[in-house]
Design a protein around this nucleic acid. Sequence first.
DNA 1: CAGGAATGTG
Length: 808
Amino acid sequence: MTAALSVHNRFFNSNTPENLSRKQLRISEKNHNPGFEINARSSKSTHLRKKQARGSKVAVETKAQNFNHTRALQELVGSGSMDRALYLFEKMNCVDTFLWNVMIRGFVDNGLLREAINFYHRMVCEGFRADYFTYPFVIKACTGLLSLVDGEKVHAKLVKCGLDLDVYVCNSVIVMYMKLECVECAERVFDEMLVRDLVSWNSMIGGYCRVGDGLSSLIFFKEMQKYGMKHDRFSLISGLGASSTVGCLKCGKEIHCQVIRSGLEMDFMVQTSLLDMYGKCGKVDYAERVFNRIFPRSIIAWNAMIGGYVLNARFLESFSCLKKMKEVDKLNPDHITMINLLPSCTQLGALLGGKSIHGYAIRKGFLPHLVLETALIDMYGVCGELKKAEQIFEIITGKNLVSWNAMIAAYVQNGQNKDAMKLFLDLWSKPLIPDAITFATLLPAYAEIATLSEGMQIHALITKLGLVSNTFISNSVVYMYTKCGDLQTARIIFGGILCKDVVSWNVIIMAHAIHGLGKFSIQLFSEMRNKGIKPNGSTFLSLLSSCSISGLVDEGWNYFNSMRKEYGIDPGIEHYGCMIDLLGRTRNLDLAKRFIEEMPLVPTARIWGSLLTASRKNNDIVSAEFAARHVLSLTHDNTGSYVLLSNMYAEAGRWEDVERIKGIMVKEGLEKTTSYSSFEKNGKTHWFINQDRTHSENYMIYNVLDILLRKIGEDIYIHNVSKFNPSSLLKKMAKSPEHHSVRLAISFGLISTTIGNPVLVRNNTRICEDCHNAVKKISKITKRELIVRDPKVFHHFRNGCCSCGDYW
DNA sequence: CAGGAATGTG
C-alpha cells in the first residue's frame, strides 16, 4: 500500500520518508494505512479504492497479480521495452522502492540516462526512500551524462542519508568522479571509506588510467596487494593500460607474469590488453605472439593488432593485417579499424587509400563519428587536401578540442599560417579551452607570420593557462620570439626552462644561427655537452647552419666530420645542404659540385638550390643553369629559381634569355612573387611593395630615403651621370632598386623609432644585392642597427657590415 | 546493486 502512503505523506506529513530509516518507513506504512481511503486524492488511489471495495478476496488476487506484474515489469525492462514497462509501472497499484529501482535501472541500462535521473527525482518526490540499490544506478546515469552538477547533488543527498557508508554506493561515486576527471574528489571518497573492496581499488586504478595518470594507476596497483587484495582480471587490465600509457615495458611484463600466475592467460579481454600494451611499448613481435594465441579473435583484437602495427610505423603490415582479418576471420572492418588505418595512409602519403577509407565509412554509415572525422581531417591535412579537411571540419557537430587542434594543424602543415591563427581566434570565442597541443600546433604559425606584439599576446595567454612549465611549449615560444626578432626574450625564456631537453638546446642554437651569431651557437653547443645532453641530428643541423650562416668554415667542417666519428650520427641530406652552403661561401664551386656528386644521398631540390645560390654569388651562369635545371626537374613550380636565373641573365645583359625565362614562366602559369616588406609600429603592421606610394606618410618616407641615398652615393641618376656607365645604369634601370620595398620600410622605420634603437623590417623574399649594399651603408651613416628578416635568416646591419657576411 | 579491452590533435 505504498502508493497510498506516498499520497498521504505528500499532503499530511511534513516528515518526509527519506528522512526516516527503512524500519521506520515500514512502521509508518502500517500506521497510515487505515486512513488511506479518507486521504486519497489521486485518481490512482480512487482506482485502488474501487478495487478494494470489492472485498478481501480481491485483495489476495491483487497481491498475486502484483507479483506477476513485478515479474512482467522486470522482463520488459530486461528486454529494453521501457515504454511498455513505464505503462505497466503506472498501472500498478502497489509500488515500492524495489520497483522504482527496477525502473531506474531499466532506464540506465537502455541509455535513457536523463529519464533515469528524472525518475529518481519523481521517486523522492512521491515519498519513496532511495536506498543503496538506487544510488549506484542514479550515479551511473549522472556519469553517463557527464553531469557533474547532477552527480554532486546526488552525492550530497546520499551522504545526508548516511548511504556513503555503503561500499557499492561509494564505488559508483568514485567511478563517477574519475570519469568526470575530478580525481581529487574520487581520492577523497576513496580515502574516507571505512571498508574498501576489490572494486574500490579497481575503480581507482581504472580511473587513473582513464585520466592518463598511468603512474598513480600503477602505484595503486602495487599498493592494493599490501591491503590483502588480490588482482583480478579488472585490475590486470587496468594495470596493463597504465603500463602502456607510461610506456613501461618492464611493468607490463611483470603484469603479464601475474596474468599467467592467475591463470587468466586465456581471458580474451586480458589478452587484448596484453596485445595492446606490447604494441604501445614498441614490442610488435611480442604483440604478435599474444595475438596468435587468441582464439576466437574478435574485431577488437584485430583492431588492437592493426593499431600496434601503425603505432610502430609498420604501415604496410597494418594493411596486410586488415586483409587477413577479412579473409581468415571473415570480419568486416568497423569504425575503429578505419581510425587505426588512417594514420597509415597519412604516413604513407596514400591519399587514395585514405579516400577509399572515407568512402567505405560513408557507405557503412560510420559517419558522423567524431573521432573518425578527426582522423580524416588529419589525413586530408597531411596529404595536402586542405579543402577536404575544411569540409569535414565544417560539418562536424559537437566539435571537441581535438577536432579544433587537428584543423589548426592541417592549416599549419599546409603553410596556411594566417588561417591557423584565424581558426585559433575562432576557438578562443568558444567555451573550449585550448591546451598544450593547441599551442604546440599553433606556435610555429606564429613564428612564421606573427608580429612581435601578437607573439607576446599568445605568450601571455600560454602563461595565463599555466602551460609555461611545459618544455615542448616553451621550446616553441623560444623559437617564436627568435623569429619575431626578439632574441633577447628568447634567451631569457630559454634560461627559465626548468627541464631543458635536447630540443630546447637545438632551438637556442638555431636561434643564434639565424641571427648570425655563430660563435654563440658554438658556445651553447659546448655548454650543452657539459650539461650531459646528448646531441642529435637536429643539433648538428642547427650547428652546421650556424657555421654556414656565420661563415665559420673550419668549425663547420670539424663538426660535420665529428658527427659520425664522435657521435655516431649519420649526416642526413639537410646536413649535406649546410655543407654546400659552406662551400659556396668559399667560392669554390667545383668543390661544391664534386661534394654533391660524392655524397651518398640523392640530391634534393634544396641541395641544387644551394648550388644555384653559390653560382649566383660567383656570377657563374653555366653552373647556375646546371643547378637550376636540376632544381626545376625536381620541383616544377620553383619560381625563385627562374627569377634568380633571369636576374643573372639581366645583369649579363642577355635580354633574350630574360625573355625566354619569362616565356617559360608564363607557360607554366608561374608568377613572380610580389616582394613586400613590413614594419611594425605600435602593434600595427605597415606594408610596402616596390615603388609603393600608398602609405599615408609617403612624402616623408621618400624624402628621407632620397636624402639617405644621396648621402651613400646611390643616387646614380643625379650624381653619377658624369661617370656614365651604360652597363651599370642598364642593370639598375632593369630593377630600379632605389625604391625597393625594403628601403621604403627602413626609411619609415627610421622616422618611426627613437634614435639609438634598432629598426626591424621583414621581407617575404630574399633581399637583393643592391639593397643589401645600400642598407649596409645606411646603417653606417645613421649609426643605427638595421635588422632585415628574410625567409631564412636575420640580417643584422651594423656600422656598414652585415651579420650574414654578404652571403645569403 | 558497482568496476573492464581496440579510436583522433603537437
